[in-house]
Design a protein around this nucleic acid. Sequence first.
DNA 1: TAAAAATAAGCAAAAAATTGCTTATTTTTT
DNA 2: AAAAAATAAGCAATTTTTTGCTTATTTTTA
Lengths: 206, 206
Amino acid sequence: MTVTEPIVVLLVDDDHDVLGANARYLRTNGIEVIVAESAQNALGRLTEQPVDVIVTDLRMPNCSGLEFAASARESRPLIPIVFFSGYAQVPDVVAAMKLGAVEFLEKPIEPEELLSVIRKFRNRQHGKTANQRHAFDALDHGYSLKTRVLAYEKYLIESCLLQHNGDVAHVLESLQINRRTFNDKMSKLGIRRDALLAGSNRKPID
Amino acid sequence: MTVTEPIVVLLVDDDHDVLGANARYLRTNGIEVIVAESAQNALGRLTEQPVDVIVTDLRMPNCSGLEFAASARESRPLIPIVFFSGYAQVPDVVAAMKLGAVEFLEKPIEPEELLSVIRKFRNRQHGKTANQRHAFDALDHGYSLKTRVLAYEKYLIESCLLQHNGDVAHVLESLQINRRTFNDKMSKLGIRRDALLAGSNRKPID
DNA sequence: TAAAAATAAGCAAAAAATTGCTTATTTTTT
DNA sequence: AAAAAATAAGCAATTTTTTGCTTATTTTTA
């Protein structure tokens, strides 16, 4: 018997009713849904527990989905983010995609489509964003050199880990780093090997 | 006396008049423009001579801008592509950005905006070398973590320098690093500020 | 042309990262 | 269940990086 860990989705929407309806649909299809009705709330949730995919409205009071996504990317540089919006303007979509969105859905959302998008991108967790070049775009302002270099280093290590199925010894060889250094970087960069592997390449449990 | 090599732009638009007007404006501003009124034609031009930036209409007869861009990417995987379109739908924009568009402009195009976009993304290419591009691909083997992180750091610093026109003080502020550190990194990473700004050795690197 | 400002680099102290050696803990194999 | 292998982390020595203070050189301004 194979037990698959549920996909954890952070669903952000200031419309209470729509939020509830979508959450319900996803839950009945085996998705673990964390809901948030504001960007502030969502950011808090993000630090509390591991999330596989973020799905957020673009337009929300106080803090827009774009601002929220930018903040979220600080701690999770490569998490798949799906935006949705009604009446989206071209510049909105462009900005969202530049921020590394993997998908942009138009309201009203078809629940089936949302589900399929989530399942599709869950496996890409920590992988490439739709437009990987933008994830480390040199022209994105606001972060220090150190921050950005560390984010890239984190990305490389995570990718390498995934590529080698969590086999640390191979990662060390591939990246040519010391095991001790690797361990230190893991904790310093906040990489959790088990959580990372839980997403993409799970072994069956009997 | 330093002569800056001109930026070469491949401008693709099936509307002959608009194409001519935009080309003229860019040329009067020092851009070398290659025009094409069809995707087929554009693909041919692309193989003939080095191009820095592609600017293409999304909707064209026969072959859409998306198909053209996909083909162009085969020979130039990282060339900056700017799309423009009137009446663009959200899915169009999403598709274009997923294909790696650096920008998406809405018709009618402001010539000034087009020019500034072109200049912006030409500079981006400028900072990259073949070696660095390998480093940015997480799945590319053969380089140590340190090598690849340093290459990325070099790319960031070069880009920032170009963006600020060589104004070191601004770079320090933007990257939040100490002047002394900056100097050391410059020599360690082998960045030559004057050569970078001279724009001397432009060559296709994709 | 002279003065002022910006940039580069030598030196040394302080801070941070790397690494080998060690033991503990977890996972896998037998 | 025991043994073996892999992983993680504490400690401390070594190396590297960062940075302030300094002077020299180059560039810009008046």
